[in-house]
């Protein structure tokens, strides 16, 4: 059988681990290692440039961990995690990883992972012969996505975001936001974030006097934030509470929050009641 060539990128901060993987992969004629990366930043850049079919990702790496790398990648490559930690397995499958290799793994175990990868690639090719499709989003319950009359209504987070939230241990929230700008990755600590603003399909992140655009629905992004610190004050705005200097009544049922740096953001009626609960 003539298998399609799978171009693979190996991401692991430990050289021996990359070497072992490359050695094992050498036995598979249809897999070609096109790059090895020793950290997450490099991985995001290289994978963006090369567009491989297959990525092997270590979880614990400097700066960006494996999950953060995956978050920043355009959908496409089949991802196989490899780590000594078994506690991330559930999370790995929730982000649509094809397989999860526990170090130390055997040649045979890697072989099984590659079989799954080939299967995934074949199914994708059959589904859309023209271009590989991104992973199918998890269906959102119809009731939740039904249009509402209330213009203030907040769309619920997507299925993926809810899964991600479910995988997060209780009481633990996103500590930083990652934004990819071309080949560069910006890491924004959550403490620095002033507010988030929905812009069509993007979220504009306002932090430390600068702003970044991130391709993600505001609801998904907000789902990972600590609800005690971040409040959705408006359909299009989520603000870090301690940034609010004061609230002003603007018109009937409509208020404006003035931030410490003088900027103003709108506060809707339901946003105001959420805010009141927390303040």
């Amino acid at each position: 059988m003539n298998l399609p060539i799978l171009r693979a990128v190996l991401v692991d901060d430990e050289a021996p681990a990359r070497r072992l993987l490359a050695e094992y992969l050498a036995a598979h004629a249809d897999v070609k290692v096109v790059a090895e990366c020793a950290n997450g930043f490099e991985a995001v850049k290289v994978i963006g440039e090369l567009g491989p079919e297959l990525v092997f990702l270590d979880v614990q790496m400097p700066k960006l961990d494996g999950f953060e790398v995956l978050e920043l990648l355009d959908p496409g490559p089949a991802v196989v995690f490899s780590t000594a930690y078994d506690e991330y397995a559930l999370k790995a499958f929730e982000v649509h990883a094809v397989d999860y290799l526990l170090k130390p793994y055997s040649r045979d175990r890697l072989g099984e992972a590659l079989d799954r990868v080939r299967e995934r690639v074949r199914m994708r090719a059959a589904a859309s012969p023209a271009a590989p499709a991104p992973p199918a989003p998890v269906a959102i319950p119809a009731a939740a996505s039904a249009p509402s009359d209330d213009e203030d209504a907040i769309p619920p987070p997507s299925g993926t975001a809810r899964l991600a939230a479910a995988a997060r241990p209780p009481g633990q929230f996103v500590e930083r936001l990652l934004v990819k700008d071309g080949a560069n990755v910006s890491v924004i600590p959550i403490d620095a974030v002033d507010y988030l603003e929905a812009q069509d399909d993007y979220v504009e992140i306002h932090a430390a006097g600068k702003s970044w655009l991130k391709t993600q629905p505001l609801s998904d992004l907000a789902a990972g934030l600590d609800p005690a610190r971040f409040v959705r004050v408006h359909r299009s705005f989520v603000v870090q509470i301690d940034r609010i200097a004061r609230l002003e009544l603007y018109a009937k049922d409509s208020r404006v929050a003035q931030l410490r740096d003088g900027r103003e953001i709108p506060v809707s009626r339901s946003g105001y009641s959420r805010l009141k609960e927390l303040m």
Partner: peptide, 18 residues
């Protein structure tokens, strides 16, 4: 620490070939 052991074993595994 099991992770230390797992990672060490993986390193040994990689050294065996090279």
């Amino acid at each position: 620490n099991p992770h230390f052991l797992f990672n060490s074993l993986n390193s040994i595994n990689s050294l065996v070939g090279a």
